[in-house]
């Protein structure tokens, strides 16, 4: 990933992973705190509409201002609904109180938010996109400069993560220009995959390139930008640490595009305590394994070596 951004636009990260309960929000909140501690101006954006509770991880009651305020048109800029947190240089745009109707964003609303995220007066923006693989979730993930896919070493989590990746991969393909042409080839080729001996997405892209070189090259360009990172959370066995590398290798073979391994975070019972006490773990137990892991993840992301 490149950290060189035009016009001091913020770097945007999206924390997702398909499955609920794998630690996305606690990671997003603490990664925000970590990047702020590392001297960056950070905005956390709670895009888990309908289930927003990042404020709780930061010990705040539901802020009066948030995404709902922005979408209602009462303010013109997202900066105006970013509220200060207990961590210096860390602000929060809450998804709470956005109204039940915002749980299902309309296309125009989503585009407006994505456009304005780039205009935030910040160095780093972290989106907590919530669980699932719905279009809204995928679009926030794909709009980010760096997607962070959180997995725990359990088959259910691996399964949801792969479902998420496949959905994101096909959505990227379908949104590649020339859209009409690519979608046409896709629908034609998909019907006869078996007969042609096409099985993996990688072979699908190769087949499209054979049929239409230009469309194929355009696809390869846009898929090259599809480089989410995989972060393994709640590691208990040393062997689990390798899961990220193995997933990364399998994705490379299967999709033909890179999924980078972002490392792992150890299981740490103090995480639970920090959630119960509604404070970032970095504030309560800065020396603990999870806190050190998050700090080192933040450092790696800032170096752009994620």
């Amino acid at each position: 990933m490149s950290r060189v951004k035009a016009d001091h636009q913020p770097m945007i990260y999206a924390v997702g992973g398909g499955k609920g309960g794998v630690g996305k929000s606690v990671i997003a909140a603490n990664l925000g705190a970590a990047l702020a501690l590392l001297g960056r101006r950070v905005v956390l954006f709670d895009a888990d509409l309908g289930g927003a509770n990042l404020h709780t991880f930061l010990g705040m009651s539901s802020p009066a201002l948030g995404i709902g305020t922005f979408l209602s048109g009462k303010v013109g800029r997202l900066d105006e609904v970013a509220v200060d947190t207990s961590v210096e240089s860390l602000r929060l745009i809450s998804g709470a109180g956005a109204g039940l109707e915002t749980a299902n964003l309309k296309y125009a609303q989503k585009s407006k938010i994505l456009r304005h995220l780039r205009k935030l007066d910040a160095d780093e923006v972290i989106l907590d996109i919530g669980a699932g693989s719905s279009f809204n979730v995928l679009d926030f993930f794909l709009a980010a400069d760096q997607g962070i896919l959180v997995l725990v070493p359990e088959p259910t989590s691996v399964e949801n993560a792969y479902h998420f990746l496949k959905s994101a991969f096909y959505r990227t393909m379908k949104d590649t220009e020339p859209k009409g042409q690519i979608r046409q080839i896709l629908s034609r080729v998909r019907g006869e995959l078996e007969a042609r001996g096409i099985h993996s997405p990688r072979e699908l892209v190769e087949q499209i390139s054979r049929e239409d070189l230009e469309a194929g090259m355009s696809l390869e360009r846009s898929l090259k930008a599809f480089r989410p990172g995989v972060l393994i959370n709640r590691v208990r066995e040393p062997g689990d640490r390798r899961l990220g590398d193995d997933v990364s290798l399998a994705c490379r073979d299967y999709f033909g595009t890179g999924v980078s391994a972002l490392g792992s975070l150890d299981y740490d019972s103090l995480v639970h305590q920090s959630i119960v006490r509604r404070r970032p773990i970095l504030e309560l137990f800065p020396g603990t394994a999870f806190a050190r892991g998050i700090m080192s993840l933040g450092e790696r992301l800032l170096r752009g070596s994620g």
Binding site: P153, P155, V158, E159, Y162, H163, H199, S200, L243, D246, V247, L249, A250, C251, Y254
Partner: peptide, 15 residues
């Protein structure tokens, strides 16, 4: 292997 769970079908794995 846990890292490929549900990623591909048996046939794809054999391929």
């Amino acid at each position: 292997h846990p890292a490929i769970y549900s990623l591909m079908s048996e046939e794809e794995r054999h391929r």
